[in-house]
């Protein structure tokens, strides 16, 4: 069949073209960052620190500092691993949690750049090791220690004066895991993990949460001013206003989003964005919400797609029969 042979040639070159401009080009254009399944044990941090030591040695600048940071990170994550193995006492942790609630409460004001999140779902939303690391040293845990000469300068830096021994950290994390793991909606997961810095205008939320409807223009405007003031505080803390996340799920690939949320420094070295430490289940909820807002047609596409394709399969079959009929006797 000559026509099939010609079709084969056309199909081959078309697929080859596609391969070259899509999978191949993208594999060459972007840095590949390996994911680690939303577990936090400092592997990436230690590797980054080691790479920085090598770089410093090469240029001969600030070698001592780089080595000190690498050593500190190693010790820090070894400590985290040790605390993780301790058996936490949730009842004892409840007393410790009272200290957290001083800042982490409903309607808390901006403190040092961001509004402290509510912790009602923290046990489910965040990974256990990450919570331990965060209470031990927030700057180190969120991998933005390069921003702080003194870890106490981190907005949550004072936590290290509240939980001074390993057992108290293990206890409060046990409490969070046992008592603060309430089921949450996808939106709640997003609001707590991302929404305090990132607005999402397609979902009508800002850094202050859902934008209410106002009866009077005056009230609406004064709320707008409040948003701007909050954004200024976040901007001052972050260096720039973190981007609106309405369309981020389509602007970045799934793999990028996952690995970026796990460890922002892996893709964007030096970024002020902290690692938020979501657990695997927590991230699934965040991703579902980003998809719901940024790619709302997904369910409709999946529902209609097969029928449209089926229509054209039947159409082609009928057209083929018609063609056969019309060409009868022509050859």
């Amino acid at each position: 069949m000559k026509e099939l042979k010609i079709f084969g040639v056309v199909a081959f070159f078309t697929l080859f073209l596609y391969w070259g401009v899509e999978p191949f080009a993208h594999s060459q254009m972007h840095k590949h960052v390996e994911g680690h399944g939303f577990t936090y044990d400092g592997t990436a941090d230690n590797a980054e620190a080691a790479a920085r030591v090598a770089l410093a040695k090469e240029s001969g600048v600030k070698v001592k500092e780089a080595e000190a940071t690498a050593a500190a990170k190693k010790t820090f994550w070894a400590d985290v691993a040790r605390i993780s193995k301790l058996k936490g006492n949730a009842t004892a942790g409840e007393a410790g949690f009272a200290m957290c609630a001083g800042c982490h409460m409903d309607g808390a004001p901006n403190m040092g750049g961001v509004i402290p999140p509510k912790l009602d779902n923290a046990g489910a939303l965040y990974d256990k090791n990450y919570l331990i690391a965060l209470i031990k040293n927030p700057a180190m845990a969120s991998n933005v220690d390069h921003k702080y000469a003194d870890p106490m300068m981190h907005p949550m830096g004072s936590v290290s004066t509240m939980f001074t021994d390993d057992q108290s950290i293990a206890d409060v994390v046990a409490f969070l895991k046992a008592k603060k793991s309430a089921e949450m909606t996808n939106k709640e997961a997003f609001d707590q993990a991302c929404g305090r810095c990132h607005a999402m205008r397609y979902a009508k939320t800002s850094q202050l949460g859902d934008t209410p409807k106002f009866k009077y223009k005056k009230d609406e405007l004064s709320y707008q001013v409040k948003i701007l003031e909050e954004q200024d505080l976040v901007k001052a803390y972050m260096g720039k206003l973190p981007p609106d996340l309405s369309m981020i799920i389509r602007a970045r690939g799934e793999h990028f989003m996952e690995t970026f949320v796990e460890n922002p420094q892996g893709h964007l070295a030096g970024t002020p964005m902290p690692r938020v430490g979501v657990s695997k289940e927590g991230y699934e909820k965040v991703k579902a919400y980003l998809t719901e807002i940024g790619d709302p047609s997904k369910p409709a596409r999946e529902a209609i797609g097969p029928w449209v394709i089926l229509f054209f399969v039947v159409f082609s079959a009928l057209a083929f029969l018609w063609k056969k009929e019309k060409w009868r006797g022509h050859h």
Partner: peptide
């Protein structure tokens, strides 16, 4: 008739 058949396959 042949064009329409090719179009059908193309639309799949």
């Amino acid at each position: 008739s042949k064009d329409i058949f090719v179009m059908g396959v193309y639309f799949i």
